[in-house]
Design a protein around this nucleic acid. Structure first.
Length: 264
DNA sequence: ACATTGACCTGAGAGC
DNA sequence: TGCTCTCAGGTCAATG
């Protein structure tokens, strides 16, 4: 679930709650989520420091510490943050709990084990090492950058959109939405897209991601014509009189309209 | 060198 | 009702 818009909302959440307060204590209840660092060492690096700011690249969140190090968070499929006053009222599966000097707590919750937390010196170094592609909400994201990605993709357009080393941040749900709004079948080979398809797609990426963020990623808030509200086999297409079909594309469940997203 | 598939993990919901 | 099976999602290793 946590794709770019979700992580963007988490980032804004942290920016408006847990900054500029001294960290009293960090409790690590599941050490296996830590990557490249032990609970002991992480505690030592975090305790008595403050969170300065939160940023994001793709599906990763970066939290700047007053020590100039960066906490890296990935939310896998089930992760989220919760800032709460009451230490007894933490979410289930809280793997990491930061307790601030003001008594509040910030929990990193993760139901399944897919997710990770680490500590790095340099945010852009980490991005380079992970071979993350360009984030589509930054200035580096241009039509010519997008065209280059399409030109170098051999597989389906869905695979290209969700390839994190090409574009960082788009996952299963939003790739379907982007293709739905652009009227392109998810199995279309990237190389077979017309110039018009590319223009529509580029516009759709921007529109879908920003709409999702504006909706605070709450399904109920999305416009009715969005696929996300009709992500169900055999549902009526909210844009035309077609039906929503479910297929597998590059190993993932994919929903699309059998009428306005015809395979060519 | 690239693209695709399967394993990882766990709980919700479907199906019997 | 209660059990078992399938599925969801993101990433990486293994396979094509």
């Amino acid at each position: 679930m946590p794709e770019l818009p979700d992580v963007e909302v988490f980032k804004e959440y942290l920016n408006s709650t847990g900054l500029h307060q001294k960290i009293d204590n960090l409790k690590v209840t599941s050490e296996y989520i830590l990557e490249g660092i032990t609970a002991r060492t992480l505690k030592r690096h975090v305790e008595n420091e403050e969170f300065e700011s939160a940023r994001r690249h793709g599906k990763y969140m970066f939290v700047e510490l007053s020590s100039d190090e960066w906490l890296v968070l990935h939310f896998g499929m089930t992760g989220f943050l919760k800032y709460t006053k009451d230490g007894d009222n933490l979410p289930e599966h809280s793997r990491l709990v930061f307790k601030f000097k003001n008594g509040y707590h910030l929990a990193y919750s993760l139901q399944r084990k897919l997710g990770m937390v680490g500590l790095v010196d340099d945010m852009s170094e980490f991005i380079a090492e992970q071979k993350l592609g360009v984030d589509p909400l930054t200035d580096e994201w241009t039509k010519s950058e997008f065209d280059e990605i399409i030109d170098s993709s051999r597989g389906s357009i869905k695979a290209a959109l969700t390839n994190q080393s090409a574009i960082a941040g788009i996952g299963n749900i939003y790739s379907d939405e982007i293709l739905f709004r652009a009227g392109i079948h998810p199995r279309t080979k990237a190389g077979r897209l017309t110039a018009d398809d590319r223009r529509k797609l580029f516009k759709s990426i921007d529109e879908v991601l920003n709409t999702a963020i504006d909706c605070r990623v709450d399904k109920e808030n999305f416009p009715r014509t969005y696929l996300i509200r009709h992500r169900e086999k055999n549902a009526n297409c909210p844009k035309c009189d077609g039906k929503i079909e479910k297929i597998k594309v590059s190993g993932r469940s994919t929903y699309f309209c059998n009428k306005h997203q015809k395979q060519r």
